[in-house]
Design a protein around this nucleic acid. Structure first.
Lengths: 297, 297
DNA sequence: GTCACTCCTGAAAGATATTTTCGGTTACCT
DNA sequence: AGGTAACCGAAAATATCTTTCAGGAGTGAC
């Protein structure tokens, strides 16, 4: 049976945000209308929605396609479902941005809420097929290189640390030159992972390209599924994009999103290599215990 | 606005039952199909449903009318809404740990859920008084040192990166020796932050102790408010501790928790130093834009 | 500044789905 | 048995959705 309600909950808004950058102006208007008033749009025909947004039917259909539906008809059904869910008491809870004069308690609440939202969006938007493929590649890799710069560099290191703990050979590279130098060493059976929110960070794309051309399996973790980095990626894992506000740089939510993806990769690999991973995890835990001791008087 | 979801909830099944007697045999078959599998029927066109029930399109439309909708189109929308509700109503039931044989989709769901839980716990357990004090200290600090090792080291770097972006002077130290060496340079008005989940990582406690004794304002970010590290901390920020499972090391949730605390610190400081922070944020954004360019052909 | 090019865009044609019409059929009543 | 009324579905009519195509705005090269 075909599943037409593949993306339950508020993930549509997330999808709109993720794909908005790759949309044209007209399509953005349509997407905006759809995201802001699902119920209202569900009541409209393709012609009506085109008029409402001041565009043409063709544009509406194109937008529906971009959002992952076969056509407007299916988008409309999904919209109806969404509207019903919202109406059935799900709290919309549209938080306001963090303001300069917000008391610290509000900051905590809002940040926690937004990061929770980011996690939900990411989980909803993650392609489990791609994820599974990436896990398979990682689990069988001779070695793995991870490229990331800036905030993404920390995520790269996080992934590397985890993989090392289960006995895999992994390296994180922040230095573009060293990254390329190392990428040249990769070959078929190896894995290269690029982490970049924008998908356009050349310093990260370049080593991935090299790895790709050397025959390694390449993975891109990015918030822009249509960005340059994906052209050298065998598997693309999409992170969620939330709107950026002045006091809340995009780096914050992109990091949260990236880390969830990384965690999923790790757990997936740990499952696949359970026989070797479990003892390794236990061993590293044991080894660390010695560095956790109370103050020696 | 027109209300197309006039019959909320499961009243459709009831309506079918009520109206069944007044229906003809063919219509009953249609109504039966609709009531028993809303989701499935929502995926069918009027022709498909007619075939499925062994009737004609006209009968399907007549049935839709009888059920109170203007036509089949609207019935179908309502059906989609109903299906979505049913699906969302189903309990997530993700209380169980991640198992070795969980499909990858479950892994994603469970991880996202657990990290959301961690965030909520952290936000609830965070002492805003201590947080405020730490923010005040940071905002006025001459320089800030952050100590963290392993996974916490990445959090330390994350905080440092953020503080640097708003023009503060901050350093992250992972090397215990260098950390101590630097801690000696601190004095009153400076801030030292130790990040350790266990609160017992000696390599992190030691530099904090030195900083404490040199008169710096010290902050501990730890999951154990009664651990050794707190004895040298002026302010203690508590992260949440969730139970660790075999495939989900504590590092995962502690990291999520620590990052939220770090984000709160950052936003708090950015608020306090808004005059200088805002231009700095804009400037660093601008500078980075040059490294995000498309593939030069 | 101009030219060539690409890509966006909407009008209209084409395809599909829905609604209506209408005549045949069946069941029931007399 | 004949007549009547209601049911039903095939097909026409309509509405809706999708695709195609050509004009046009924006962009980069020269």
């Amino acid at each position: 049976m075909k599943e037409i309600f593949g993306s339950p909950g508020g993930s549509l808004a997330a999808k709109v945000r993720t794909l908005a950058p790759s949309m044209t102006r007209s399509m953005q208007r349509v997407a905006e209308a759809v995201a802001s008033d699902p119920a209202g749009c569900a009541a409209l025909t393709v012609t009506g929605l085109a008029e409402l947004t001041g565009t043409s039917e063709a544009t509406v259909v194109r937008t529906a396609r971009l959002l992952g539906y076969p056509g407007y008809r299916d988008l409309r059904l999904a919209l109806a479902g969404l509207a019903a869910q919202q109406q059935s008491g799900r709290a919309p809870a549209i938080t306001t941005d963090i303001a300069v004069d917000d008391p610290i308690a509000d900051v905590v609440t809002k940040l926690a809420y937004e990061e929770q939202q980011t996690l939900a969006d990411t989980a909803a938007g993650l392609d489990t097929g791609q994820l599974g493929a990436a896990v398979t590649a990682l689990a069988g890799a001779r070695r793995t290189d991870v490229y990331g710069i800036g905030a993404s560099g920390l995520v790269a290191q996080d992934l590397t640390q985890k993989l090392l703990r289960i006995g895999l050979i992994a390296h994180a590279h922040s230095d573009p030159h060293l990254a390329v130098t190392n990428a040249v060493q990769l070959r078929s059976g190896d894995v290269a992972i690029a982490i970049t929110h924008s998908g356009s960070t050349w310093d990260v794309i370049e080593p991935l390209r090299v790895a790709f051309e050397r025959g390694a399996t390449t993975v891109a973790i990015t918030g822009r599924p249509d960005s340059p980095v994906t052209q050298y990626a065998d598997h693309v894992l999409t992170t969620s994009t939330s709107r950026e506000t002045e006091l809340r740089p995009a780096a914050m939510s992109s990091r949260t999103s990236q880390l969830l993806v990384v965690d999923c990769l790790f757990v997936g690999v740990a499952q696949r290599t359970y026989e070797t991973a479990a003892p390794s995890l236990a061993a590293s835990y044991e080894a660390l215990a010695h560095r956790h001791r109370t103050n020696p008087r």
